[in-house]
């Protein structure tokens, strides 16, 4: 079962059993975006608080909460994502997102200068997912939803 052990690493199971930053934030002031995986029906809600949104990439993600249901991979990825983005500049969050998607083997990720330096920390544990292509969309569901939430928080008119 070597492949499975690679997929279901202890830290992933830990985030699955004890997800961090689960819950809701009041909207407004927070932004809420729902993400779906149409193939399996998984649903995720990202609640995002961004301070001084007018500063664009320099605005700060002050809080994030995750709602919805999903498999161990989508839930643990979203849980680790919350730890990776709280307190960070929006520009840095986007860099982590690009780096993570590129780790997942997603094509068309527009990596930028400096992305190489990004430390994915716990998220590195998800690299085993790449061996199971069907599950990659589980791992990136939260991140894609976060991207939409960032866009909406920074430009609510859209």
């Amino acid at each position: 079962m070597s492949g499975l052990e690679d997929l279901y690493r202890e830290i992933i199971l830990d985030h699955y059993r004890t997800p961090r930053n689960r819950g809701e934030l009041d909207t407004p002031p927070a932004t809420k975006v729902d993400g779906h995986n149409p193939l399996c029906g998984d649903e995720i809600s990202v609640y995002l608080m961004v301070e001084d949104a007018e500063n664009g990439d320099d605005a700060i993600v002050t809080d994030i909460k995750i709602g919805g249901q999903g498999c161990s991979i989508s839930q643990s990825s979203a849980s680790m994502m919350t730890n990776a983005v709280i307190g960070k500049r929006v520009g840095d969050v986007r860099a982590v997102s690009r780096k993570f998607k590129s780790l997942m083997g997603i094509e068309n990720v527009d990596l930028q200068a400096g992305d190489d330096e990004v430390d994915l920390e716990d998220l590195e544990a998800l690299q085993g997912v790449v061996k199971f292509p069907v599950r990659i969309k589980c791992a990136v569901l939260g991140w894609n939803t976060l991207s939409s939430a960032l866009d909406e928080a920074l430009d609510p008119a859209e």
Binding site: M1, G3, Y8, C40, D42, G70, C71
Partner: peptide, 21 residues
Amino acid sequence: LHPHDVSQVLDETNVCVRAGH
């Protein structure tokens, strides 16, 4: 357990089932 995880584990022993809606 989430059906995705169940079917993933079953696949280790070549048991093919569907997980989803």
